[in-house]
Amino acid sequence: MGDWLSQNGLLLGLATLDGLSYAAAVFMVAVGLNLVFGVLRILNIAHGSLYAIGGYAAASLSLFLSSRGLPEWLSLPALVVAAALVGVLLGPVIERLLLRRVEGQEPVLQLLVTFALFMVLEDLQKLVWGVQPVVSDTPVRLLGNVEIPFGADTIPFTAYQLFVLPGIALLTLVGLAWFLRRTLAGRMIVAVTEDREAARAMGIDAAKVTLLTFTAGAALAALGGALASPVASLVPGVGAQTIVLSFAVVATAGLGRVEGAAVTALLIGLGRAFAVYFEPELEVVVPYIIMVLVLLIRPQGLFGTPETRRI
């Protein structure tokens, strides 16, 4: 063990850096879904589509800015603006027109509404943005590289990957936790998450809370895509692949727990990075292995509370 550590210690350090930045990306993918699930009790399959649309919108906005010859630094706030736009434009529409109409129906119907929406959005996105990969990497180029020492060598990392992604993820985590605990609107959301009926009885407008939460969730999904857009190439099918990962995170985390999503994202991020370094063949199944292991030990998920047995 000692031998192995001294040989691979430096590599472990690199793997940790990679793992952290990947964890940040995973957290951003899943946090919105987790929030929505907590309040609406709907596993939103269209979350993956919102992620993709957020990414496309951010790339388009950034390309538009640079085509107008506007300063490059604008591309950074553009990521957030694009995500917010997608959330505000699509979130309320989806919630009002579709989800509200199946409220109180069987869970499977609610689930399938989002599945149907996913199918529609998938083709719609293709009609708008075509099939050729879309990318705008101005933000990454803008911030440049950081050299990380590695023995006698140095390894370049992009500042975007090392600081911006984890930074925004951390801000989102802290901001969301603060919002949910310290603000009235946040507490209303928590109340509805815990017990919808009781919250209603206390005079909380559950419909309004639902609308607010879904819009926030949609914006967070879009933000996840927007943050990935400077690095990743957006192609048809991104949504389908994203959704599986975020499902795994939500189930592992426990229902509607923001901290749970963060811890799970860390587990998956680090697990995947270590897999790439030491056992590459396992990389693809890491999220599922983690999920199955966690649920074996804690059937209600990492941060979930066991449901009281109703009679």
């Binding site: 399938l112 509404v113 599945f115 149907a116 929406l117 996913f118 199918m119 529609v120 998938e122 083709d123």
Partner: peptide, 9 residues
């Protein structure tokens, strides 16, 4: 895919 989705909706 969109047609199938709409039918389901």
């Amino acid at each position: 895919q969109m047609i199938l989705g709409l039918v389901l909706l």
